[in-house]
């Protein structure tokens, strides 16, 4: 077996720079998509999990991972897994704060059972008001809902509990 040139930690470190193409304020590690890295004889295998089954960003993320590791001379295989199923609980608190600053209200509850009750009081990421209402359960991407703030009148997106 060829001695690994890079350790698992080093590869994780590199991959932690890759951002979510749809929410460039957060990285794929912070959002919980980056699950694991296995060192193999030829390079490494990167395990990722999609936020939503139909997430169109997965192809770009896979290409970004391969390109970045290739720059460092690491041959990477990317494996998509559905287990464990991704949940918004995997998003770190730091990432939630970054989302808010970016203008997206982060998920408020843990992966909630009762979505209709849980998502009525969403804080406006612009002015902090709780006086907001849902416009549509589905926004510009499957993971977000459309809201509007009744105080500052700004529309905003809310990252849904999942």
């Amino acid at each position: 077996m060829v001695a690994a040139k890079h350790t698992k930690e080093e590869i994780f470190e590199l991959l932690s720079q890759i951002v979510d193409p749809e929410i460039p304020a957060v990285t794929i590690e912070e959002i919980g998509m980056l699950q694991d890295v296995n060192i193999t004889e030829t390079g490494c295998e990167v395990i990722i999990t999609p936020t939503y089954t139909g997430c169109p960003a997965m192809g770009i993320i896979e290409a970004d991972i391969k390109a970045l590791l290739d720059e460092h001379g690491i041959e990477a295989k990317v494996k998509l897994v559905y287990d464990p199923a991704w949940t918004t609980d995997m998003i770190t608190d730091v990432a939630k704060e970054k989302m808010r600053k970016y203008g997206i209200a982060p998920p408020v509850n843990s992966s909630c059972g009762n979505i209709t009750v849980a998502e009525r009081e969403i804080e406006c990421p612009q002015c902090g008001s709780q006086n907001t209402e849902v416009v549509s359960r589905f926004g510009s991407t499957a993971c977000k809902a459309l809201y509007k703030c009744n105080d500052c009148k700004e529309p905003f997106e809310y990252f849904k509990c999942h």
Binding site: T53, G54, P56, F138, A142
Partner: peptide, 9 residues
């Protein structure tokens, strides 16, 4: 969006 979930599934 619903259609996209279904394509993924």
């Amino acid at each position: 969006n619903l259609a996209l979930d279904l394509i993924g599934r």
